[in-house]
């Protein structure tokens, strides 16, 4: 038995503390009466109250949800068909298809943002919620495709053949055999697309027009204008929502396994 060194373990816990300490401080400070986080000025809900009264935030929140739902739906459809094609067919076209699906995952966000902005400007498309939705679908497709593809790799193709031998047509095999089998992959891809869309700042910032401010764009302008305690409160709410969604996802996937 290899004698264990303590160093990797200690370092791992330091890294985890490093990862979570700023977030924890932010949550604590959202209840801090003092404007700057340096000292504790007493417990308060005042930042949350102010937050709920800010109308622009609700407007941005509505935009974010609208974009996220449309982008998630469209990219889930496109990503799932892409994954099925990549999994099922091997050809020169699929090799190109794979590069097309894979590249957006690696290209830095700012390049995706500026290239789409130039594209829309060159075509004289007016910037607004529509362009934000198009941009979000584009980067979400690849993530959904990868999630579904990884599920398809464990999928036994002979099940489809069996279904056909038993007299099912293509429509039936697709909806009654294939889709239920890869559903966990589709679901995790859709969840990923949704969170990425809700979180995205850089790409949205480039292609958003007047009236299409999303929540991250609004948070960014708040960071710039310097209303720090309000961002703390908003961030805490968003973190809470994220954690709840992940918890729900974990519970769902556990149920599915059983």
């Amino acid at each position: 038995m290899l004698r264990k060194s303590r160093f990797p373990g200690i370092l791992t816990w330091i890294v985890l503390i490093f990862l979570y300490l700023p977030i924890l401080l932010l949550i604590v400070n959202s209840f801090n009466l003092a404007r700057t986080g340096g000292h504790w000025g007493g417990f308060t809900f005042q930042w949350y109250e102010k937050l709920f009264k800010a109308r622009e935030i609700w407007f941005a929140f509505r935009n974010t949800l609208l974009v996220a739902f449309v982008a998630t739906f469209a990219s889930t459809v496109l990503g799932t068909t892409a994954a099925c094609a990549l999994h099922r067919y091997k050809s020169k076209i699929q090799d190109m298809h794979y590069v097309l699906v894979y590249s957006p995952l690696i290209v830095p966000e700012i390049l995706t943002g500026i290239s789409l902005l130039l594209f829309f400007v060159a075509l004289r498309v007016e910037l607004g919620l529509g362009t934000v939705i198009f941009a979000h679908i584009t980067f979400c497709v690849s993530y959904v495709a990868m999630a579904v593809l990884s599920r398809l790799q464990d999928f036994d193709n002979t099940i489809i053949e069996a279904a056909h031998d038993l007299g099912a047509n293509t429509w039936q095999t697709t909806w009654k055999v294939l889709v239920p089998c890869i559903f966990p992959g589709i679901l995790s891809g859709a969840m990923l697309a949704f969170t990425l869309s809700v979180d995205d700042f850089v790409i949205s910032f480039f292609v958003a027009g007047p009236g299409s401010t999303t929540l991250p764009i609004h948070i960014y302008s708040m960071i710039r204008r310097g209303s720090l305690p309000l961002i703390n409160a908003l961030s805490t709410i968003l973190l809470a929502i994220t954690f709840l969604v992940i918890l729900a996802g974990q519970i769902l996937s556990h149920k599915h396994k059983k």
Partner: peptide
């Protein structure tokens, strides 16, 4: 194959490949 490939292929060509070349 076309039915499964064309939607994402066309979308990514239009909104990823062409914009990148436009730069």
């Amino acid at each position: 194959e076309g039915f499964l490939t064309v939607p994402s292929f066309a979308w990514l060509t239009l909104f990823f490949l062409i914009p990148t070349l436009i730069i």
